[in-house]
Design a protein around this nucleic acid. Sequence first.
RNA 1: GUGGUUGUAGCUCAGCUGGUUAGAGCACUAGAUUGUGGUUCUAGGGGUCGUCGGUUCGAACCCGAUCUUCCACCCCA
Length: 453
Amino acid sequence: MSQKPSIPKGTRDFSPIEMARRNYIFDVIKKSFKKYGFQQIETPAMENLSTLVGTGGEESDKLIFKILNSGDYLAKVDKNAFSTQNSSIITHQISEKALHYDLTVPFARYVVQNQNDITFPFRRFQIQPVWRADRPQKGRYREFYQCDADIIGSDSLLNEVDLIKMIDDVFTELFQGKLNYSISINNRKVLSGIAEAVGEKNKLTDITVAIDKLDKIGVDKVLDELKEKNLSTESIQSLKPLFELQGNSTEKIMFLAGFLSCSEIGKKGIEELEFVFETLQKLGLKTAKVIFDPTLARGLGYYTGTIIEVKVENFPSITGGGRYDDLTGTFGLKNVSGVGISFGADRIYDVLLDNNLYPEFKGDSTQVLFTNQSSADESRFLPMLFALRDVGINAEIYTEQAKWQKQMIFADKKGVKYIVSANEKGETFMKSNDSTEKIPFKTINELISFITK
RNA sequence: GUGGUUGUAGCUCAGCUGGUUAGAGCACUAGAUUGUGGUUCUAGGGGUCGUCGGUUCGAACCCGAUCUUCCACCCCA
């Protein structure tokens, strides 16, 4: 052992069985995307750093993996900037590219660049890895796949309804009705309305960040945090009823409608929520439990309307999304609204594994193994091998003339279903993996019908 | 970025309060046996005990730093 090989923190290798499971998840999601009229695109793994920074808020800027410029990257650094040792200034001088942090921002960039060729409303999906310089922990990786579906160029709330129905479809299939999950919905306009209604319009983020922690740290700590952020005692007092909200989603919405009656933007948010909930109620959902959660905030800076998050017990959110009214605005295309969601394939993988929800995968491995104990075997089996492959059966020959035992162990470990062998007289036999009975056969058609029966 | 945690053979781990050439199981390789299905037996390869530095006559074991693992916070898929 010269040196111990390893991979970067938060990244993973995927074995054959893991890939089979991952592809199963991707296939289910992709099938739904297509069914709802989304078309696939792909964007580069790296973007210009300038298109990525400043779109998702300060927090996400910190988590962007930057790519060092090629060549003598230090030579171009401004000497004054260098001597300040200010990394954020120097960063932009030594790095002009970065790995994308999510798929929504590259998509917005794509839309602006290709606006003349796109017919709006545009439904696109994108399944690619994203990178975040985060600290790995449970369900959190530095390289992971997002499966994004976005509709851009439409204000209609029917899109929100469509996305939630699609979430229902995907998890109904993946969870097979055996696992509870909930789709939490809120609206940024409601959060703005709350800030406005308590007279702290400019403390919106402080309020939402604090509210978001309600179920984690409890009412008292949230109030403490608001005090620290210099909210007036009256404001905090008037926020209090929100923390004690009881009842189902409809009752909560009704309460907030009253609470926000003095705020235009708040009223708009309530209207939007009501539409989404009412429409979903009419259409019905297969397995999803949709709840209005006024404490749902979500950090990404660009959301302006509906926000969505899917949760399973004991896991961080497995799907998230929302509406953004002006994401393309930062790239020069105004007045284009979009809404989208992102399935976190890697977290879904962990959830399915934890709950034993993977179907048995058939046909992923070799179905038929031709044993090889002599060059006579090789010449007699090779034509059969290719004949099987030609009719679509996964088959291989053991390429070494090895001991029978070794070949059987190989077949067993690989999960091969059928074994073909010959004796010294040249008689050929086939058998299935779970029995020791060898059945003689003469023609390739006999073999095929045995395997495909 | 903050706090905690982990690191001994390819894998899972043992190694008592620091004391001679660091062990086991599995895996791997070769041979024998079973005489073409996973048995059994024998032998063998493989570790500068994450890395660097310190304490000590002596360190896998104590101390420091660093990297790594996992977990929590922040934030998020």
